[in-house]
Design a protein around this nucleic acid. Structure first.
Length: 128
DNA sequence: CTTCTCACA
DNA sequence: TGTGAGTA
């Protein structure tokens, strides 16, 4: 499920192909890049190379534009989308630290009680 | 031939 | 956003 996403991110399409796939002019495609909506890579000859994800985003932008949304509006939509992703990322990190909290708490207890891990083991064997 | 940047009779 | 100029 991750190998697939990697392929979709591979920039292998020249602008000419993108034009046919999206029905957008080169001018528009470059303009949307200028607006930060997409960030195509560049090959050795400074030629823009697009990925399938870039195509999807361009088509998405095209739809928003068709719905009457302007550049500013589209930028806001992606800005909000980025913030929500940031929150999800923060939550994952928080849940991961929660797991670590137990380890930290346990180590703290061991230190305060003065019990080594080996002693804890022997205590258990003695039913304590 | 395709794409790039820059500019606007 | 279109388009032509001059390149790479």
């Amino acid at each position: 499920m991750k190998e697939k996403e990697l392929r979709r991110s591979l920039a292998v399409l020249p602008i000419g192909t993108v034009m046919k796939l999206t029905d957008l002019t080169a001018r528009q495609i470059r303009y949307y890049e200028e607006q930060g909506l997409i960030i195509p890579e560049r090959n050795e000859g400074n030629r823009r190379m697009y990925s399938l994800n870039n195509i999807d985003k361009l088509l998405e932008v095209k739809d928003y534009l068709a719905e009457g949304i302007n550049m500013a509006g589209i930028k806001q939509i992606y800005a909000e989308r980025a913030q929500e992703e940031a929150k999800r990322q923060a939550k994952r990190e928080k849940s991961l630290t929660d797991a670590d909290v137990r380890r930290i708490l346990r180590d703290e207890f061991v230190a305060v009680s003065g019990l080594s891990k080996q002693n804890q083991f022997s205590f258990r064997n003695n039913g304590l």
